[in-house]
Structure formats: structure tokens, C-alpha cells
């Protein structure tokens, strides 16, 4: 309760202390603008990070639960080998379902590379079988041995070869988003420290008079800290609102657009935006506190 009381007291402020420190000129605009710009960037870094996280989870989940059996065999043996492979799969523990893809589905898979008019009949294509695993999954090595014994032309691909790099790339992207947010927080702190130092230097005479009449450092620092904290809060709130509006204007997620169209926030993640102005205010509070106490220590 005492911490909450302190926050409320800080927000209300001391009108007399506020009045003693004159308006700090250009540092007002500098603080508000930099907090707004940084908050705007944080919205995008956050959206990027969360979208990359969703993508990593989805790829990891979807690809982990599916596998493919590819059957390469002479045309006259293709149907028999396909049926044999399906039989093996139906009796394999950990396989939820298995089905051979139709010609139409195989055409759709190849269309992005060869175009929609692909003459499948004229090409020696392998038969693809889609395998969906149960939650516990199957024994890949055991299944490979069984397929090798019963269906010589079958090759099992559980996607491990390319699933790993994809999930790793998405995870790196997520990490990059968070690192960006941390860097932006530090840059905001640095800018506010510079602005606070400028304001303190411009008010050296005011500080000297306040010290002369018995003001404690904490009393003087409080006036500056409150001023910069509230400015950063206001600037970051504006930047966050603009960032959120910009996210709303982005195209919504679609299969055709791929990853780039899924950059917006989803569901409860929108609530995270409320934290941005609060974090900006905390950064400003700490940066101004450090700058004020360092400056005051150098004065008599």
C-alpha cells in the first residue's frame, strides 16, 4: 500500500516544488517527441516479436505433427506400393491418419513452381502420402525399417531436416524483436538523461537558491523527475496510439500474403500496448533520477 501511496503522491506532485522550477523550454518538446517516436517503434518491435513467436509455435506444432511418405516406383507398381505403405502406416503406433494425396492436391502443391497447367500425366511424379501423428508421435527409425522391408520405393520424411532451421529462424526473429525493445528502452533513457541534464544545467541558479534556503536534493530532484516522467508518459501514450493505428492499417493475416500479412497483434496481445507508456514513464523516472542526483552532487 505504501508503494501505491508513493506512486499516487508522485503523480499528484507538490505544486509548490513544481512552481519553484521554471518551465524547461526545448527539453519539453525533446522529451515528448523522443518518447512518442520510441513508443511508436516499440509497438512494431513488439508486433514483430509476437508475430514471429506465433509463427515459430505454429510451424513447430504443425510440422512436428505431420510427415510425408514419398513413393517412387514404376507406374505399374505405384498403386500396389501405395496401398502397402498405407497398410504399414495404419498399423503403426503413433500414426493418427494416413492418406494418399490426389492428383489434384499434388498439382496444387507444385503449382507455385510449375504453374497451374502442369501435365501431371506426362511426368514421372512420386506418390505422396500425408501422415498425421498422434500427440505421442511415432518411432521414425522403426517406421523407416518397416517401410524399407515392405515398400522398397517408400521414403519417410518427417520434416525434421527443414523444420529445425525454420523454427530457429522464427525464434531468432522473436529474439530480435525483444532485443530491439530493450535497445529502444536504453536509447529512450539516454535521450531523457540528456534532456534532463540540459534542464538541470539551465536551472543551475534555481537549484543554487533552493539549496541555499535548505532544500534537500530529493526535494529538488523530485520536481524534475515528476516533470520528465509525465512528459515521457504523455509522449509514449501518443506514440503507442499512433503505432496501434498503424498496425490496424496493415493487411490482415492471409495464406496468400504469407508471413508479412500476419504482423499485427492478436487478441489479448493488444493489451500489452498499455505497458508501453508505463515502461516509458519508468525509464524516464529512473533516467531523470540518475541525472538529477549526479548533477546535484556536483553542486554545493
Amino acid at each position: 500500500m505504501s508503494a501505491l501511496r508513493s506512486v499516487i503522491d508522485f503523480a499528484i506532485g507538490d505544486a509548490q516544488a513544481e512552481k519553484a522550477v521554471p518551465p524547461t523550454g526545448f527539453t519539453v518538446r525533446l522529451t515528448v517527441f523522443s518518447a512518442a517516436a520510441m513508443a511508436f517503434l516499440v509497438v512494431f518491435a513488439l508486433a514483430l516479436s509476437l508475430a514471429a513467436g506465433r509463427l515459430a509455435d505454429r510451424w513447430s506444432d504443425e510440422l512436428a505433427r505431420s510427415a510425408t511418405v514419398r513413393i517412387s516406383a514404376p507406374v505399374e507398381q505405384m498403386a500396389a506400393q501405395t496401398e502397402a505403405a498405407l497398410n504399414v502406416l495404419r498399423t503403426t503406433e503413433g500414426v493418427e491418419s494416413a492418406r494418399a494425396l490426389t492428383l489434384e492436391e499434388q498439382r496444387e502443391l507444385l503449382a507455385p513452381w510449375f504453374g497451374p497447367e502442369l501435365p501431371l500425366d506426362a511426368l514421372p511424379l512420386p506418390q505422396m502420402i500425408e501422415v498425421i501423428e498422434t500427440a505421442s508421435g511415432f518411432d521414425g527409425d522403426g517406421l523407416r525399417l518397416r517401410l524399407a522391408g515392405e515398400v522398397p520405393g517408400a521414403v519417410l520424411d518427417n520434416h525434421a531436416r527443414w523444420r529445425g532451421p525454420l523454427v530457429s529462424a522464427a525464434s531468432s526473429l522473436r529474439l530480435l524483436g525483444w532485443v530491439s525493445i530493450i535497445l529502444i528502452a536504453f536509447a529512450t533513457g539516454a535521450m531523457i538523461t540528456l534532456a534532463a541534464n540540459a534542464a538541470l544545467a539551465a536551472n543551475a541558479q534555481v537549484i543554487a537558491v533552493m539549496r541555499l534556503v535548505g532544500a534537500r536534493d530529493s526535494y529538488i530532484a523530485q520536481a524534475f523527475m515528476r516533470r520528465f516522467t509525465l512528459r515521457a508518459l504523455a509522449g509514449a501514450a501518443a506514440g503507442t496510439v499512433f503505432g496501434a493505428l498503424a498496425l490496424l492499417l496493415l493487411p490482415s493475416a492471409s495464406e496468400e500474403g504469407g508471413f508479412l500479412t500476419g504482423l499485427g497483434l492478436q487478441g489479448a496481445h493488444w493489451l500489452l500496448l498499455i505497458l508501453i507508456p508505463i515502461l516509458a514513464a519508468v525509464v524516464a523516472f529512473l533516467a531523470t533520477r540518475l541525472a538529477a542526483h549526479n548533477t546535484l552532487r556536483s553542486l554545493t
Partner: peptide
């Protein structure tokens, strides 16, 4: 520094150059 600030409340100082806060009224 806090001790010195508290001690200054018991010492009235009249400076040669009469430092005031120019944006506050005399009463303030």
C-alpha cells in the same frame, strides 16, 4: 548533503547578490 540542507534551515544567509527565483513573486 541532507544534513547540510537541514543545517541551512537554521542558518539565514543574505547573499551579496541577493539570489532570487526571478519567475516567482517576492512573496513566493
Amino acid at each position: 548533503r541532507d544534513d547540510i540542507a537541514l543545517a541551512r534551515r537554521r542558518v539565514g544567509v543574505v547573499h551579496q547578490d541577493c539570489q532570487f527565483l526571478d519567475h516567482l513573486s517576492l512573496q513566493e
